[in-house]
C-alpha cells in the first residue's frame, strides 16, 4: 500500500515533469513532448485521485475542509476539465497555464500539510459541504475560463499585430477560445454564486450573521464581482479591451487569496 504522502509527492513530481515538458515543447517545437506531457498528466491524475480517495476514506468527508485539501481538490477538477477540453477541442495550449497552476496548488497542499482529521459536527452539515463543493468546482471552471480568455487575448493581439508568437501554432481558432472561455465563465459563475450563497446561509445559521470578513470571504467577494464584470464584458462584446485584462488579473488574484484564506473551521 502506497502511503498518502508518497502518492502526493509522486503526483506532484509527475505533474511537474509534464509542466516542464510542455514548456520544453515551446522551445523545441516538438509536438511529441506535448503528447508525452498529456500521458504524464493522465498518470499523475491517477495518483491524484488515489490521494483524494485516501482522504475521503480516512476522514469520511469530502477533501474540502482545509487549505491542503481544497487546493488539491481544485487542482483535481482543473485537470478533469483540462483533459475533457483537450479531448473535445484538441486545445493543448491551455496546458501552458493550467499545468503550472495545478503544480502550484498541489505544492501548497504538500507544504501546508495538515494532518487528516475527522469532520467536526458543523462540517457534516449538508449546506456546508454543498458550499465547499460548489465554490471549488465553480472556482475551477472560472480558472479554466480565465486560461482560455488569456489564450484569446494572446491570439487576438498576434492576429492584429500580424506577428506570430511562440504559441500561435498551438492556440486554436478565436471562435473556439471564445466559446470555451465564455461557457466556462457562465457555468463557473453560476456554480460559484450558488456556492457563495450556500456559504452565506451556513454562516447565518452558525453565527447569526450573513458573513464574517476574513481574507477568504473578502477574496471571494472581490473575485465574484470581477468575474461578474468579465461576464458583462463578454455579453456586451467588449471583452477584448485592456480593461478586461486588468479585471481578469484582479479576478485571478482575488481567487488565489480566497483559496489561501481557507483554514480549518
Amino acid at each position: 500500500m502506497v502511503s498518502p504522502t508518497l502518492s502526493l509527492y509522486l503526483t506532484i513530481a509527475v505533474y511537474a515533469v509534464a509542466a516542464g515538458l510542455v514548456f520544453l515543447s515551446l522551445l523545441t517545437r516538438r509536438e511529441q513532448l506535448q503528447r508525452l506531457a498529456t500521458m504524464l498528466i493522465g498518470l499523475g491524475f491517477i495518483g491524484h485521485t488515489i490521494w483524494i480517495g485516501t482522504i475521503c476514506s480516512t476522514t469520511h468527508h469530502p477533501p474540502l475542509t482545509n487549505l491542503p485539501e481544497a487546493a488539491s481538490f481544485i487542482a483535481w477538477v482543473l485537470i478533469v476539465v483540462e483533459l475533457a477540453l483537450l479531448f473535445r477541442f484538441k486545445v493543448q495550449a491551455a496546458a501552458f497555464f493550467v499545468y503550472p497552476l495545478v503544480v502550484m496548488l498541489l505544492a501548497t497542499t504538500a507544504i501546508v500539510s495538515e494532518p487528516f482529521a475527522p469532520p467536526t459536527p458543523e462540517q457534516t452539515s449538508k449546506i456546508f459541504i454543498g458550499h465547499l463543493l460548489l465554490t471549488m468546482v465553480g472556482v475551477a471552471a472560472l480558472l479554466i475560463g480565465l486560461a482560455f480568455g488569456a489564450l484569446y487575448q494572446i491570439q487576438d493581439r498576434a492576429m492584429k499585430a500580424k506577428k506570430r508568437g511562440a504559441l500561435y501554432e498551438w492556440i486554436p481558432n478565436l471562435r473556439v477560445l471564445d466559446i470555451v472561455s465564455y461557457r466556462s465563465m457562465v457555468v463557473g459563475f453560476a456554480i460559484y454564486s450558488a456556492g457563495i450563497l450556500a456559504g452565506v446561509l451556513f454562516a447565518y445559521n452558525r453565527h447569526g450573521a450573513l458573513t464574517t470578513f476574513g481574507a477568504k470571504e473578502s477574496g471571494a467577494l472581490v473575485a465574484w464581482v470581477a468575474f461578474a464584470v468579465m461576464l458583462q464584458a463578454h455579453l456586451s462584446g467588449t471583452f477584448r479591451t485592456r480593461k478586461t485584462v486588468g479585471v481578469a488579473l484582479v479576478a485571478f488574484l482575488a481567487t488565489v487569496v480566497s483559496i489561501f484564506g481557507i483554514s480549518r473551521g
Binding site: M159, N173, L174, R175, V176
Partner: peptide, 8 residues
C-alpha cells in the same frame, strides 16, 4: 488559413 484561425 487566416480565416480558419479566426472562425474555425
Amino acid at each position: 488559413e487566416l480565416a480558419k484561425k479566426i472562425f474555425g
